[in-house]
Design a binder for these strands. Structure first.
Lengths: 273, 273
DNA sequence: GTCTAAATGGAATATAAATTCCATTCGCAA
DNA sequence: TTGCGAATGGAATTTATATTCCATTTAGAC
């Protein structure tokens, strides 16, 4: 059994730690205790900071890392950093990997999309601010008419809203852009607009949201980044990061937010009656 | 108003980001978007890594940091590192937050839908027949015009198809039922219909699919059960089982199938040219 | 107590990263 | 088109950080 194989995950490091803890000399034991108690700090600190926090000299911390089977602190930190990253993967890299293999058979493609969709959903729990979601529901429940604005890729989302609100008898208008009607004219104070748009943002959506805001209507934004123009103009933001494959982005997360909003608003309105 | 007060929290940084996003030059905007989409990476990466991931030079990233009001990258990273732990809660703490808000809150509902969506996606891999998927792609790639039929809950799916096909210049017609036009008249031999319907099946969808079949067009069905009327009339079935929460069914799985079909068909058509 | 091996602290060095600088390119107005 | 200022890329420089080295201290064995 190779005693000093270098650990490759945080768990492995902590395990090695508990094995060795007894036999470690005093200062090195201090390092071990500190790391065991604050594993999250390792990824974002320097040797100097950690050693000081642990109450030892930097050189002692170095020896501690080597005792664990690493060549030095940097190698150990790399494990803590990349493991952190694996919980929150870098999509661009993943995406590149995706293109390399699986686009041959449609079924392989499906597998990739399933994976991407799952990741999107996972993200959703952390990207959507619970307070903003609650606020959005409260506003939408109190409002007279809900206007649904979103074109191109966002249109499936708004059309789903339209279906769901209709089913629950919540007054909602789907602005399809059909017939060249000016959506803005129908928006009045006491209404709310749900604006859905992702980068690259559709000009028309931003315009309508801006106009609605100017007219004194609430604006709820389902969008992807804090840099979105919708956020800029003061909408309540529900941030959804979808991953894209090639030129196409998934919609699972956005649709889930839509369903939640619709159901919650429907329930809230039911309660008021 | 002191324009360049340096932000002291991640929120403040992201806020500043959304303010400035529009006025930033191209490369700096790339940085902004990357940081907005991957705030977690900032704490554990170097300038070189981040700039490469954002697709810019390190010096551009530096200028970006300064634009935000920091003296440089290090100062900005310090902000991200200091509350890195508190900002990125793991699954356990997320559940705790969930309990705090109570099971009645919209956020709890969101958690439920995320879970359901994930399960739906997993099911997808087993419910969709790889051979049928391949067959569907082959047929759709060979066909002149693709007709998209699906109403009510299925409409977001067909409207997504419409968007995706348009983007790839695949001739497709979205039958919206608007204007009372009879969709059937436009369907001819050598065309294909993608019919989307779930129990309880929309009468009109079945009718159009049947008529299309009678006229010698291929029919691809995205539906939920083998007992679906669409399957009975001889369509190529892509079976999707969505789970529902209350009276509302998720759409993640259906949308994923739609994306896969669209991408695969687009690629296949590209190849033929 | 003295010897020895291990452990420690701190300074010196090597390495890697951040930051700046400047020549070149780009986009726009005249 | 030409000229101008802003924006950019890449190399040079500075700064921070990790790592090593060695003199000194400590703890245990005889």
């Amino acid at each position: 059994m190779p005693e000093d194989l270098t650990p490759t995950s945080i768990e492995a490091v902590l395990e090695r730690l508990s094995e060795k803890a007894e036999t470690l000399p005093r200062r090195l034991k201090q390092c071990a205790d500190y790391v065991a108690a604050n594993p999250d700090r390792v990824a974002v600190s320097t040797v100097a900071e950690l050693s000081q926090a642990a109450g030892v000299q930097p050189s002692a911390f170095m020896r501690f890392c080597q005792e664990l089977g690493f060549s030095g602190f940097s190698q150990m930190q790399k494990v803590f950093r990349s493991d952190h990253a694996s919980r929150w993967p870098d999509y661009r890299t993943r995406l590149a990997a995706l293109h390399e293999h699986g686009t041959e058979s449609p079924f392989a493609l499906l597998a990739e999309f399933v994976e991407v969709g799952r990741m999107s959903l996972e993200n959703l729990m952390t990207s959507v601010d619970p307070a903003a979601l609650e606020e959005a529901v409260t506003r939408l429940a109190a409002v007279r008419t809900i206007h649904l604005v979103g074109f191109r890729r966002a249109f499936p989302v708004t059309s789903y809203f339209s279906y769901a609100f209709a089913k629950m008898q919540v007054p909602a208008i789907l602005h399809s852009g059909l017939g060249g009607m000016d959506a803005c004219d129908t928006i009045r104070p006491g209404d709310a607009v749900i604006a859905v748009s992702f980068a690259p943002y559709t000009e028309r959506t931003i315009e309508i949201a801006g106009e609605a805001k100017a007219r004194g209507a609430d604006v709820i934004a389902i969008t992807d980044l804090v840099t979105s123009p919708l956020v800029r103009l003061g909408a309540i933001p529900l941030l959804v990061t979808e991953l894209d494959v090639g030129a196409f982005r998934a919609l699972s997360a956005s649709l889930s937010v839509a369903i939640v909003l619709a159901v919650a608003v429907g329930a809230a309105r039911e309660k008021e009656k």
